[in-house]
């Protein structure tokens, strides 16, 4: 069993670092995002190997929800009023690969949960041995995490539906000649 754990650890660590290097080297950002999700799922597998199945499940579910939110946002932006949807279909295949990866990871984690001896169980460590009373001491962190998630969701919704952000024409400003406060101050001084 130890040899199996070591082999699994080496395989997932190689996937994690290889995915990270691919994220940095690939020019195509959609494929880079695919490798980022692969790295995240490898990270979840390493967490499961460490005995933190719940953390791994949280990571996979979080990435699943985030990917679905990104797909929804992209559909909203590319097929909205005046949006350019000519290049959107080219992204569907990598996006489908991302969703397939996440579903495969969820199935793998479910299999792990159903068949505990396959991976070293949480044993007496960590969350498994905590009672409900001990978990209460972490309520500030839980509150902070909830606030961060809420801020992210509300912020993403507000940014997605605000028209003034979408209508900003960044191409109108040349580099270093845009809304630079130094230039505004200089023009004010010249006017005086």
């Amino acid at each position: 069993m130890a040899a199996l754990n070591s082999a699994l650890f080496i395989a997932f660590a190689a996937c994690l670092l290889g995915g990270a290097v691919a994220v940095l080297l690939l020019r195509d950002m959609v494929r880079a995002a695919l490798f980022l999700v692969l790295a995240a799922l490898s990270c979840a597998a390493l967490c499961a190997l460490l005995g933190h199945q719940y953390l791994a499940l949280f990571l996979v579910l979080g990435y699943a929800c985030t990917t679905l939110a990104m797909l929804g946002l992209s559909a909203l932006c590319f097929t909205g009023n005046g949006g350019d949807d000519t290049h959107a279909p080219a992204y569907w295949r990598p996006a489908a690969a991302v969703v397939g990866l996440i579903v495969a990871a969820e199935v793998m984690l479910l299999v792990v949960f159903g068949d505990q001896p396959a991976i070293q169980p949480a044993s007496s460590r960590s969350i498994a041995k905590l009672s409900a009373g001990q978990l209460v001491q972490y309520w500030p962190q839980a509150l902070l995490a909830g606030l961060v998630v809420l801020t992210g969701l509300v912020g993403a919704a507000v940014i997605a539906f605000r028209q003034d952000v979408a209508e900003m024409d960044f191409n109108a400003y040349e580099p270093n000649e845009g809304l630079v406060l130094r230039d505004v101050a200089r023009s004010g001084a010249d006017a005086q």
């Binding site: 979080g62 939110a69 990104m70 962190q141 961060v148 992210g152 912020g155 997605a160 979408a166």
Partner: peptide, 28 residues
């Protein structure tokens, strides 16, 4: 584990905010 959950939550929120901003810029 609690801190790891916090780090992952920050990562998810960052993806949501940054992604929404980039999609909004990419529209026009």
């Amino acid at each position: 584990i609690v801190l790891a959950v916090l780090a992952f939550v920050v990562a998810f929120a960052q993806v949501l905010l940054f992604g929404a901003l980039l999609f909004a810029v990419l529209r026009n």
